[in-house]
Design a protein around this nucleic acid. Structure first.
Lengths: 336, 336
DNA sequence: GTGAAAGCGCTAACAT
DNA sequence: ATGTTAGCGCTTTCAC
């Protein structure tokens, strides 16, 4: 590495003191316009580049936030992260990424490495099976602001940004009802999962509001993937009490559902209604195109980052919960 | 923020010197097992957390690498980034993310902020319209190792990891030919784009190898999105000289193609052959399921990170180019 | 408006 | 094997 140009070099080059250079460089107070210009000019010609670690050390703040999330190969998280990065970088913050692969052990390891001496704040989406918030509580106690997004630990007192799963699910199911479907099943994830239970709740509410009967038979809990959707739909269609529509907890399961329907020569969007959740781009590539509840992924990202920065700047002292509404994107799969 | 526990505190608590503590803490040489244990014990009880910025300042190395890329909402880049993050964190490196939105101006701004005083290395995928590599050359000259992935600037002498687009395209087209299709068109991106020209080259090679005639009519340049695929396919099917198969430069265009075929009641996978490129997950959600050339996205990520770390550790002095092969995933859309 | 000086927390010679 | 010490580059009182 070549010799490093520091503010000291600028100072001696200009025969002024380092403190003046320091002040001039971040265009701050108490420095005459002329000196400021001379300093900036010198910085340019000497090819000065600030050392962020030195700054972070002296200032005890690094202008860097950490993001903990399961993965980014699914559209939803990629969009959330995009929202975060965009907001953060627009406000002068950098973003370090920690991908847990949805593994609580990996998450824990990351968490143990972190501290306020490294990061100004943390945005986290916990692993699915993570139940204990100790590591987060420790970080908060050390003075590191934490904001949860999408998934939050109930045991940890921190701000959180979630989407309105209940309302979204109600929207979806009400739409199916209005389209003329009456026997609406719900395929969803594991029973103890928070997202599962919220979307189920919305499903049940919608049925109730419409005076439709609820049957346990029509609620199938399994995985969140395409194959589970395929299998769940198979089970429903094989049962004596066949539904004529399905509300799927997410798009991926809905894609599996489409496949199953296709194999049975059941036309989705006329004989059979289908609505998904997430509204990933592929929802409009499949056939028939999938009606889906759009999750406000980018907004979740940017709003959680906004809250985090407020915490960092000490604007907000206490935890806030923000719940963002979704929006129904109506396509062919829910026609009648 | 609470009072900070430093190695000095541990030292005085144990009545030993800070250097011993420092050495003991990163389990290094020249420290007796007993002291090491006592130090680690004290660190735990005193709730010591290392200050990475202080360390980075003293060591002139931050164990952090930067990633510049256009976006992550498409599957390919998300997978590459996953490969990078996984490799990096497994080797003790952290990853800071810079998303350019494929905008050269944004890219340039990021690049100007960066320096070896902040990062140990940089992994970059340049914006599509970026032609000038000055900023990268400057960084390299400052001693910051840079490795390009997926897209590289010809003008910059740095290592790069790319996929074998030519071979992949040849694979795709040869497969169509072997399936019995003879009139194979190619829908692709802008003429001056590097990916476009490489995949086109593979397409032409395959035709030539099979002794099939090449027609300019059957090569359509437009955008990379679904809609372009839809439109391009429309043009081809409206032309006097109709193809019976399409090799699409990517999956998204292929999805548009499927839509167009569907509207015209042309059955892909029997009347008409179709192969895409990328093999994103949705390739197997659509109907008929899309045959596609799988891009080794994760590997591109991990291998570029591997090369970068070698540069950082000064193992490799000069630039290396690595070209990874793809693999054809055969599904229904290319049957006959 | 500008300067001197004391750190920020850690590392790495060098000495012992 | 352990200690002493001089920084790493920047910020920030506190004087003037």
């Amino acid at each position: 590495m070549n010799k490093i140009v520091t503010i000291r070099d600028i100072a001696s080059h200009l025969s002024i003191s380092v403190s003046t250079v320091s002040r001039a460089l971040r265009g701050s107070y108490d420095v005459s316009p002329e000196t400021r210009e001379r300093v900036k000019e010198a910085a340019r010609t000497l090819q000065y580049h600030p050392n962020y670690h030195a700054r972070a050390l002296a200032r005890r703040s690094s202008y860097t936030i950490g993001i903990i999330l399961p993965y980014i190969t699914n559209y939803y998280f990629a969009a959330v992260l995009t929202g975060i990065e965009e907001y953060a970088s627009r406000h002068g913050y950098h973003v370090t990424l920690f991908m847990t692969q949805d593994n609580p052990a990996t998450e824990k390891i990351f968490l143990q490495q972190l501290s306020p001496y490294r990061l100004d704040g943390l945005l986290a989406c916990t692993s699915l099976d993570n139940s204990e918030g100790m590591a987060y509580t420790r970080l908060l106690a050390m003075g590191l602001p934490v904001v949860f997004f999408d998934r939050a630990l109930g045991s940890v007192l921190a701000s959180r940004v979630l989407q309105d799963d209940v309302a979204g699910a109600r929207l979806a199911v009400t739409h199916l009802i209005e389209s003329g479907y009456r026997n609406i099943a719900h395929i969803t994830g594991a029973v103890n999962n928070l997202m599962t239970s919220r979307r189920l709740q919305g499903y049940l509410q919608a049925l109730e509001e419409a005076g439709l009967q609820q049957t346990n038979e029509w609620v199938i809990h399994s995985g969140f993937d395409v194959e589970s959707g395929y299998n769940d739909t198979g089970r429903l269609l094989d049962s004596a009490n066949q539904p004529d529509a399905i509300f799927s907890v997410n798009d991926r399961k809905a894609f599996g559902c489409l496949q199953q329907l296709r194999e049975r020569k059941i036309t989705a969007g006329s004989q059979f209604g289908l609505v998904g959740f997430t509204n990933e781009p592929s929802a409009s590539y499949v056939f028939p195109r999938l009606t889906s509840v759009e999750e406000p992924a980018m907004e979740i990202g940017s709003e959680s980052c906004e809250i985090l920065l407020k915490h960092i700047h000490n604007k907000w002292k206490h935890a806030e919960e923000r719940i963002l509404p979704g929006r129904l994107c109506i396509r062919e799969s829910s026609h009648r």
